[in-house]
Design a protein around this nucleic acid. Structure first.
Lengths: 152, 152
DNA sequence: AATGATTTTTAGGCAATCCGAAAAATTTAT
DNA sequence: ATAAATTTTTCGGATTGCCTAAAAATCATT
């Protein structure tokens, strides 16, 4: 099985390969904030297991197998980011957190969060009333409906 | 700083100590599904760092410092479980996932999820209408409001 | 083509966390 | 009190993933 960290590498390679179809050790290392030495090692492992094509000193690219994994993870992360930002988590934080938990969440959970995102997106209103209420609740700390009841 | 795994240990000790005020290596090992040998090691480390009182071969209990950490984590987990179950994730899955991500989520994110839970709990209706809609959406795959528009 | 700069690899290490096996201590039952 | 069963510790080892430093390869410039 593929370690969590390995998945990060695959996803990164995926992103970095978009233009040219391949990427280099240095780029991966910068993106992931690890030293090139660590990337070299990981590439050896990933190519051994058939996730990347690794031509030493030349380039790294994904195999079909690797691309499939990467795409899955990327999709998962996008869902998580959307989900968290919908709930009012600042984008930068949402992205960080998504990157961490994308690897560990049960698919069942992801499925459900995905449904939630769709539920909000497919709502007829641009921003559903309840979501507006929620945002208000976040700002004022009081449920708008309660206010209505008390005041009205 | 305390490793993620160490936090799991603290939380487990906390739970197991509730009745008697202390717990034993074996119990921790069963709860965390690791061998007693691993627990011994971790206890040595945690007591060195002042998180537990570790009387070799006799018992393990939390120090104040350890209890504080444990309580924090437990609270975070409870929020997560509530949150996930609210969104329709089955309890067992929610508990598993919560246990994993409780350690890594940004406090900002947790804060926001907590607000969401409160928002739902403090809603005047037992189950807010939108949440009913969401559940329906989960079952039928169609947003109830859309149905209303199309049919009506 | 030679020099210098950059990139990459290799080698040796470190930390966290787990394991199994064997030894030691404790507990339980007789 | 002793034998048997259980619990706990210790020790050596494995894995994952990261690092530094030094060597090697590649690239860029003249």
């Amino acid at each position: 099985m593929l370690g969590r960290r390995a998945e990060d590498y695959l996803e990164t390679i995926y992103e970095l390969s978009k233009e040219r179809g391949y990427t280099k050790v240095k780029d991966i290392s910068s993106k992931l904030n690890v030293k090139p030495a660590s990337v070299s090692e990981m590439m050896a492992k990933l190519s051994e297991q058939g996730y990347v094509v690794y031509e030493k000193r030349l380039f790294v690219s994904l195999t079909k197998k690797g691309r499939e994994v990467a795409e899955n993870i990327r999709e998962r992360r996008e869902i998580l980011v959307k989900f968290l930002t919908t709930l009012g988590v600042p984008r930068s934080v949402a992205e960080e957190d998504a990157c961490i938990i994308e690897h560990v969440l049960n698919p069942e959970t992801v499925k459900q969060l995905k449904k939630f995102v769709r539920f909000v997106e497919e709502s007829p209103a641009l921003t559903p009333k309840w979501l507006k209420h929620f945002k208000e609740f976040c700002e004022k700390g009081v449920h708008p409906c309660d206010v209505a009841r008390v005041r009205g």
